[in-house]
Design a protein around this nucleic acid. Structure first.
Length: 150
DNA sequence: GCCAACGTTGGC
DNA sequence: GCCAACGTTGGC
């Protein structure tokens, strides 16, 4: 089993939204590296840190689980969607996604600022300068360590 | 709202 | 294949 971190802007889709809906198709990823992680490496049952980005208190707010294999992101074919990609063909979809299932909310937000203060997490992808990936792997050691911070 | 740090696009 | 221009992400 692998571990991941997925970012979402809480104004667009928050951990509370996921809790209410139980499962969500993680659509709208339009970055090749992030897509490749979902398409090639994610498996049902993998665990996910749910991260709130671009907000007052960025940080890890909950845990989710990969709930499907990768399949084509339907929004790429929807002309009314802001994720519409006119260059993607149905016979050869460019963008893939997975379903993500709610597991739990953390008792508190483990903030980005706090994560930066732990030497153990120095190598964490999330904390690398300039990293803007919305889907990224988390090392098992990092996963376990972060859970002890809750 | 600002802007650094990207990734993508397209002219050449 | 280079690289300038442009668009996006996301912390602050």
């Amino acid at each position: 089993m692998k571990y991941w971190l997925m970012k979402s802007e809480p104004e667009a889709f928050s951990i509370d939204d996921l809790k209410r809906k139980r499962t969500e198709a993680w659509d709208g990823v339009r970055n090749y590296q992030a897509r490749n992680f979902m398409r090639d490496s994610m498996r049902p049952g993998d665990q996910v840190f749910f991260y709130h980005s671009n907000c007052a208190e960025p940080g890890i707010v909950g845990i989710a689980e990969v709930a499907s294999a990768a399949y084509p992101d339907p929004s790429q074919f929807d002309a009314k969607s802001k994720y519409f990609d006119p260059t993607s063909k149905r016979e050869e979809p460019r963008w893939m996604l997975v379903d993500v299932k709610f597991v739990k909310k953390l008792k508190r937000t483990i903030t980005l600022d706090e994560l930066k203060g732990h030497e153990t997490l120095d190598e964490m992808l999330l904390l690398r300068k300039g990293n803007r990936l919305s889907v990224m792997p988390v090392a098992a050691t990092e996963w376990r360590y972060i859970l002890t911070l809750e």
